[in-house]
C-alpha cells in the first residue's frame, strides 16, 4: 500500500519586485519532485545545506504552499488550506527540540493541544492517552508539569516525538531529529524511533545531512542537490554503488575511521548560484565527468539497475 505519493511537487520563492526593469523569475528552492513511499517504509532524504530539504519537508506537512504539484496520503489528495487536516495524517519532528516547545507552556499543555484540537478528546481520555504515549517514548509522567527549559536536548526531542505521536498520524516527517543531540543520546533516540515505527505502524520521512545515520535507519534514500532529486536507491546500495557523481562525493567526504584524510574535491569549486542557476545539470561545475551536454541539458531521472534511479548523463558504473 502506498502511504505517500508526491507528484511534481515544486516551490519557487518570489523575489521582491524591483522598482525598474522586468520582473525577476524567483528562486526555485525545490524543482519538481515525484516519488512514493510504501506504508511502513522509512525514506531517507539527504543533502547539504541549501539543497531544499527543509522547504520540501515543510510543504509535505502543509506549513508551506507548494507552487506546483500534489500530495496524496493513503490515496487521498490533500487540501492545503487546512493545517488541521494535515495534522491528523502527517506530523513533523523538528530539528531543534528546545525551540520547538513553547517556553511558557507546560509539557502537559503542549501534549494536550493536538489531542483536543485534532481529535476532540475529553479530559479523561486525554490524560489516559498522554500516559500511554509517554510510556512508549520512555518519559516519566512527572515531567508533564514542568517547562521546556528544564529538559536536556534528548529529553526535549522525546517530548517532540511524543507530541507528533499524539496526533496519531500515518506519516511522520523527521527533520534532522538527532543532529542537535550528542552521539550517545542520538543512538537512544534513533532506536526509540525504530521501536515506535513498529509499534504504531508508522511511515517515516527521515531528513538528515548525516549519511551514516540515514543509512542506518532507512529502507530507501533520496539524494537532493540544488532542489532536485539526483538519485534514489536502496539504503544498503546507494552509498556503496552510487550512480550519480554527487552521491559518490558525499560518500567520500564523510569522515570514516580508518580512511586517510583526503579532500575528495578540487578546492576552487563554486556552488551553483540560486539567483542565477546554470542551464544544464546543476552539479556540472563540480563534476569531474562533466561534458558539453551536461552544461546544456538538465538530465532527467532515469532507471539504472533494478531499484535505483539517477539523474546523470554520465552515470558511474555500479
Amino acid at each position: 500500500m502506498i502511504a505517500l505519493k508526491v507528484d511534481n511537487l515544486s516551490k519557487t520563492f518570489a523575489l521582491p519586485r524591483r522598482l525598474f526593469g522586468p520582473a525577476r523569475p524567483g528562486v526555485r528552492a525545490v524543482r519538481p519532485v515525484s516519488f512514493q513511499v510504501e506504508k511502513g517504509e522509512t525514506l531517507g532524504i539527504v543533502g547539504e545545506s541549501g539543497c531544499g530539504k527543509s522547504t520540501f519537508a515543510r510543504m509535505l506537512v502543509g506549513l508551506l504552499e507548494p507552487t506546483t504539484g500534489r500530495i496524496e496520503i493513503a490515496g487521498k489528495a490533500l487540501d492545503t488550506a487546512d493545517p488541521a487536516a494535515f495534522g491528523r495524517l502527517i506530523q513533523y519532528v523538528f530539528q531543534d527540540p528546545i525551540s520547538s516547545l513553547n517556553p511558557r507552556k507546560t509539557i502537559r499543555q503542549i501534549m494536550e493541544t493536538p489531542l483536543r484540537l485534532l481529535h476532540g478528546m475529553t479530559r479523561a481520555d486525554r490524560a489516559a492517552r498522554i500516559a500511554e504515549i509517554f510510556d512508549s517514548v520512555n518519559l516519566r509522567e512527572e515531567f508533564l508539569d514542568r517547562y521546556p527549559h528544564e529538559f536536556s536536548g534528548g529529553q526535549a526531542q522525546r517530548i517532540g516525538i511524543a507530541r507528533a505521536l499524539a496526533a496519531a498520524p500515518e506519516i511522520i516527517v523527521l527533520d534532522e531529529p538527532v543532529s542537535a543531540l550528542d552521539v550517545s543520546v542520538q543512538a537512544q533516540v534513533l532506536n526509540l524511533l525504530a521501536d515506535l515505527r513498529a509499534e504504531f505502524d508508522l511511515t517515516y520521512l527521515f531528513i538528515s545531512h548525516d549519511l551514516a545515520v540515514v543509512e542506518a535507519v532507512s529502507d530507501r534514500v533520496v539524494v537532493l542537490y540544488f532542489g532536485a532529486v539526483v538519485e534514489i536507491g536502496r539504503a544498503e546500495s546507494i552509498f556503496n554503488a552510487p550512480r550519480h557523481p554527487y552521491t559518490r562525493l558525499l560518500a567520500d567526504s564523510a569522515p570514516v575511521v580508518g580512511r586517510p584524510l583526503t579532500a575528495p574535491e578540487q578546492r576552487d569549486t563554486e556552488l551553483p548560484d540560486p539567483l542565477n542557476p546554470p542551464p544544464g545539470c546543476a552539479f556540472a561545475g563540480r563534476c569531474p565527468r562533466a561534458t558539453e551536454i551536461c552544461r546544456a541539458q538538465d538530465p532527467p531521472l532515469t532507471q539504472m539497475g533494478d531499484d535505483q534511479l539517477a539523474a546523470c548523463h554520465h552515470p558511474l558504473d555500479p
Partner: peptide, 14 residues
C-alpha cells in the same frame, strides 16, 4: 554508538 557508513540498516548501540 556512532553509526559508520557502509554498515547498512541496523539497530545502534546506545
Amino acid at each position: 554508538c556512532v553509526p559508520e557508513l557502509g554498515g547498512g540498516r541496523r539497530r545502534l548501540e546506545a
